[in-house]
Structures are given as C-alpha cells and as structure tokens.
Design a protein around this nucleic acid. Structure first.
Lengths: 326, 326
DNA sequence: TTGAAAGCGCTAACAT
DNA sequence: ATGTTAGCGCTTTCAA
C-alpha cells in the first residue's frame, strides 16, 4: 500500500509537506513547484489517502448512520435515499441499519456505531428505544429522530393526528359512514396518533357506532392471521389503513381468503399508494413529503455536527390525494 | 474519551495486557484475577473500544459496502435488507450506496469506499460500470456482483432469459396472443435478456405480428412521456412488464391519461406485485428468491474475504405466480 | 517555505 | 503471566 511517506521519499521532502499539499491546506506555505511534483507523484504511484488513519488522527470519521426499522419498506427506502443524497453532497458516507422494531437490536447497533466513531446518527427509534437515543446524546454524538419523536432531540416528521383527522373528514364529507380502521399491531407514536384521530373524529361526527379497529399481527405472514382481521370488512362503506404496510398486506391476502373489494367501497391509506389508483374504484391516500423530511433531517444533523444544540421539532404538511374511477 | 491506557493506569498493568483481555485473546496468558479487574474497570469507566484505531492497526475495517442503483426500489431494498442481516451476523456493518444507474457516480463512490478501506463490496453495476468493477478487483478488494454479471467476479442472480420465456409461454398457453411489452428504457443486461426472450418466444410461436415493444423514458416523470407508451395498449390481450418499476409507473399514470384496464386483459410483471393480485382480473408475476440471493452474495463475499478466488455464477430458480379474479 | 517530532488508540512480536 | 516497544498512516504544532 502506497503511503504519503512513499511520495515524500520519492521527492526527498517530508511527509508533512505531502500531507499539506494533498489535503489542500498548503496555501502559500508550499512552493508551486513542490506542489506540482507532489500531485504528479501521487498520481503516478496511484496514491489514495487512507481515511482510517485520517479518522484516527482527526477524530472525525465522515461517517453517519441512518437507523430505520426496515429498509425494505418503501417509505424508509425513500427516506434513506434522500438522506444519502444530501450526505453525499456534504462528503459523508452512510451506514444503514435495520432494527426490525426491536429496541435491543437498536441498542446493540448504536453501541457498535459509537465504537465505529460515526459523526452522527439519524434514527427512527423503535418502541422502547428512548433510552438508547438518550445514550447517543450523552456520548456527545449528534442525533436527529425522524418519523417518531424522542425527548430533547431534533425531530422531523409530520402531524399525524391532524393528517389523520383530515383523512377521516374527507371520507365523511363524501357520505361514507361506516369506516373501519386496519392497522399493524404495533405500539408506535405515529400509528397511535392516526388511530386516535380516527376515533375522535368519528365520535365528533356522531359515528361512534361505526368505530371499528382491526389489527394485523406484526411480523407474521400466515393467512390465518388475517381471517379475523378481514372478516365482514366487505360490508363497510370505507376502509382506512393507517400505513402502507397495513394496506399492502391486506391487499395481498384479501384474495387468498376469497374476498373481493366492492366497487362502492372507499379505500384510504396513510402513505402513497399511487400505483393502485387505477385498480380500485375509490382510492385515496395521505402523501408525506419524504424528500423534504429526508433532506431536513440531514441538514439538522449537519448543524449539530457543527455545534448547534438541536432540540427543535419540524413538522411538514401532508396532502390528500383522491382519485375515483370514472 | 476513555482509552485502554486509562484502564491500564488505573490497575497498574500495561495496556497490552488490557488489549489482550478485552479482545478475548488472553487465553491463559493473563491471570483470572487481572482479567476480572480489567473487565470491571472497563465497565466502571464505561470504556468502548475505538474501532478506528483497531482498523488502522489490523488493516481490517469490518465494513462492507452494498452498491445498488436505487435503494428506494423495493427489490433492492429487500436485497439490501437480507445482505445486512447476514453481515450483522458476521460482525460487519454495511455502507449502502446509490448510483442512480450512473457509471460516474459508481466510480466515484468506489474510490471513496476504497479510501475508507472497506473489506469488500457487493455491487449491482450500472451500465458501463465494468471497468470500475475491475478496479475494485485490481485493488485486491473482494467483490461480488448481483443482478447483473461482470467479468471475473462472483455473480449471484437469476436466469432472466429462461424466466422471461416461461412467462411468455404461460400467457400463450392460456390463449393470449397479442402480448405487448412495456419496459424501462435502460440498457442493462437483465432487462435486455427479458426483452430478447419475449421476442424469441413470440416468434417461436408464430406471433411475430404481435411483437410490440414500448419503452418508458427512464428518470422522467412527466405524464406526456407516457401518452405514446400507453397508446392503444387497451386493445391488446396481455401486457408484459419487464420490471416492477415499469409496472408501477404505468399503473400510476394510466389513470391520469383517462385509461382503464379491461377485465379480459392479462397483466404479467417481472418481479413481485402480490399486493395487486386482488385489484385486477388476471395478474401474474415472476418471483425472484431475493432472500436467497442476498444471503448467497454475502456468503460469497465472506469466502473471498477469507481468501477464496471468486469467479462463480450462482443462478437461482424463479417462480411464476398466477391469480385470476373469480 | 519546509522539516522534525509527537501522538491519535490500538495490536502483536518479542522480552522478561 | 505480564511488560516493552514499535508502528499502522495521518495531521499538526513548533522549530528552523
């Protein structure tokens, strides 16, 4: 492996001179002549800086981590994508981590990441992950939470309650009365808020009797798990899915249990299901500005890495998309 | 920051002793008494090993990279997930990279990764990325390609030609004759092979006159780009999408241009579209064993990291899933 | 304008 | 059973 020493030896200069030149910090401290020779020799020898050594010396790894619950979930995939784009611009590489909604995995991976000396962490904390977020903070490592807030940290997300209320009201306004809710059986803030807004809004409109909550067992795939969840769902006016995962899992199973979806039924999903717009007669969904959320979270992390305090909440507006088959 | 030296000072032993104990390499070389004290003190001081220093010293970063074209694409999201799971088991962290199908980004990021001293790279090479793969190899860094093969490297994927032929034959067998193909306008091996198999199979069955290829401009989102692609598509017996992205983009736009999908039409997609099974009358798709592909690619990388040569092709069988609305 | 020297935190060969 | 020492490749202060 070629090191700066090799270049220095070749040219009969010291390795500090080479370092100065190659890291662009030479300014007028090194003669143009020497500079040119250093660059030439570096190219000739096919020299590449060893970032590990640099990290050890400078104390900065130029590595951040994005911790999500499941990278194969399209929402988190996009979120990660946009954070990566922003990070790349700023010269950071990103370590992605999946916690699978497990606080122990979260904690374990954070420990590893801190050992790896990441410069910052953007996390979607799993249920019960609050202390781990606190650990990160207490180690003096910048941290931003996304999608689910945590105490005393920058948070970027949406107002789930308000967005969910708007969703329910859009359906009620169009005359749907018996609206059932389908959700993953998962105790996380966004899903809880969406559920609460559903209940409150239904009650506010005198539709108490139609409140109907069905939970999909999380992490299971067996068809039998769905039988109960789906039972009688055909007869309601509308179905409200509180996450895309809830929607796609239901859609994937609905057919296996011999169900079909009535043309008159309205399907409302929290999160983008644009590709389904054509296939069903009345589909609506809440769109989160995931690109903005991703970019903002990196921006906040970067601010913290430059010394900012970081205890703000940044809520983005959502949008309801509606399309009825004509 | 607490270092091994701090622990050594506290106990009046040398830091090599501490290192030996903490890295589990002590064996019988250090007395049980000292071992216990070292562990205790480490806990007390809340010591965590500095992996950067360790990497510099050992020459191994315990970091690998997964380079895909787009992490927000569900197929690649799942692939990444499964690689991460395998990597975590083996004690590696993974840096994910998006190339956006751009060979220049691919090359640039590989340069950065090599500087970061990653122990290995699993890549989905973008079109024109062959030399960059060669660069990785020439630097002596283990590399495995997935989804798209490259010369002289381990490759994991499927037999796209055979799978595509089987897809077309399944439709022909059921009496569909005018079968149109919709694909992303992208010059990459898997898509080309799927297209070739389509043409060949149609011809082999005397359906030359129905061969009809429609390309979706890659990376554009404007509705106008789809008008031409979709024109007249309503009248064919079946539509064959050579990737999920082609399918979802089409489905998302079909409705905006005032189209609908006839009940008699068969939609066939390369890649899992299970959630759509219910929504359309005759949907079929090719399923890739993405979990196996992911795990195998890490396994091969690991073998290379342990000294294996690595020039094998590993093709996995695919499966056709069919569901008609009853 | 350049060089010498120290040191980041760790490991491992070699002594004792 | 434990300590000494050298050094991984780099940056940075201080001296020349």
């Amino acid at each position: 492996m070629i090191s700066m020493q090799d270049i220095a030896d070749r040219l009969g200069v010291s390795r500090s001179t080479v370092s100065l030149v190659l890291s662009g910090k030479a300014g007028s401290r090194v003669s143009e002549d020497v500079k040119k020779k250093v660059f030439e020799t570096a190219r000739e020898l096919n020299y590449h800086v060893n970032e590990v050594a640099r990290s050890l010396r400078t104390g900065s790894s130029r590595l951040i981590s994005v911790i999500v619950t499941d990278i194969s979930n399209e929402f988190f995939g996009r979120l990660t994508l946009h954070i990566q784009e922003a990070a790349k611009q700023a010269g950071y590489l990103v370590l992605t981590i999946n916690t699978n909604e497990d606080p122990r995995e979260f904690e374990e991976m954070v420990r590893v990441l801190l050992s790896k000396k990441v410069d910052g962490i953007i996390a979607v904390p799993p249920p019960g992950g609050e202390e781990t977020v606190e650990t990160i903070r207490s180690m003096g490592v910048p941290v931003v939470t996304v999608d689910r807030p945590a105490k005393d940290t920058d948070f970027v997300g949406i107002d789930n309650y308000a967005a969910s209320r708007a969703a329910i009201e859009s359906m009620i306004k169009d005359g749907f009365r018996s609206i059932s809710l389908v959700a993953l059986d998962l105790d996380i803030a966004p899903l809880n808020q969406r559920r609460d807004a559903y209940v409150d809004t239904m009650k506010a409109h005198g539709l108490d009797e139609y409140v109907d909550i069905r939970l999909i067992p999380f992490g299971k795939e067996a068809e039998t798990d769905f039988i109960e969840t789906l039972s009688g769902l055909r007869t309601v006016d509308a179905v409200y899915f509180t996450s895309r995962r809830a929607f796609t899992q239901t859609m994937a199973h609905v057919v296996w249990v011999g169900m079909s979806i009535p043309d008159s039924q309205c399907l409302f999903c929290f999160d983008d299901i644009r590709p389904y717009l054509n296939a069903l007669s009345d589909v609506r969904f809440v769109e989160q500005p995931v690109k903005e959320i991703g970019r903002k979270s990196f921006e906040l992390l970067q601010a913290q890495m430059q010394g900012a305090q970081g205890t703000g909440n940044y809520l983005y507006p959502t949008q309801i998309i509606t399309k009825r088959k004509s």
